[in-house]
């Protein structure tokens, strides 16, 4: 059995700092936990993704997986609210890809994301289903 080394003495300041770091670290984590709780209480689903998952669930079932889908909305994409609504809808409808129909793209399918009831017709597309909660499903009109 090896001989035990003599006991060591450490500077009191070192002990004090070890206690300080332990206490303050735990105190910081407790404050972090309180902040998390406050944020969770004040802003559940801050980006509307959970809501979008529920709203777009029927559309997701009807769209072919991986389809390109024209995105129609009454909230312009050059506003913060419009971007947030678009991104939440895109997350909910993936792996379908939402595209801006104002460009040269006119996919066979379209999805509407509207903030209030209104006439939902869009040029070049016909409404095939009003899925409720402002979600509309479109199909491109075939040119004759």
């Amino acid at each position: 059995m090896p001989a035990a080394e003599p006991a060591s003495r450490y500077p009191a300041l070192l002990l004090a700092v070890a206690v300080l770091v332990s206490v303050l670290s735990i105190s910081g984590l407790l404050r972090s936990y309180r902040t998390t709780g406050q944020l969770a209480a004040s802003s559940r689903d801050p980006y509307g993704v959970e809501l979008a998952m529920r709203r777009f669930a029927p559309a997701r079932r009807q769209l072919p997986a991986g389809a390109r889908v024209a995105y129609f909305t009454d909230v312009p994409l050059n506003t913060e609210a419009g971007v947030a609504a678009f991104l939440a809808a895109q997350h909910a409808l993936a792996p379908c890809l939402l595209v801006d129909p104002s460009g040269d793209q006119s996919p066979a399918w379209g999805a509407g994301n509207f903030s209030r009831p209104q006439p939902y017709e869009q040029p070049g597309y016909r409404v095939i289903a009003d899925l409720g909660n402002g979600v509309i499903l479109y199909r491109r009109e075939e040119r004759r």
Partner: peptide, 28 residues
């Protein structure tokens, strides 16, 4: 409180994961 993560999670990292797991749609 945020099961889908924060902004970049749902709009970049997890969104791209959904495409990658989506068969032929992975190229999106």
């Amino acid at each position: 409180a945020a099961p889908y993560g924060e902004w970049d999670a749902s709009s970049i990292w997890n969104l791209r994961a959904r495409f990658l797991a989506g068969g032929d749609a992975w190229r999106y």
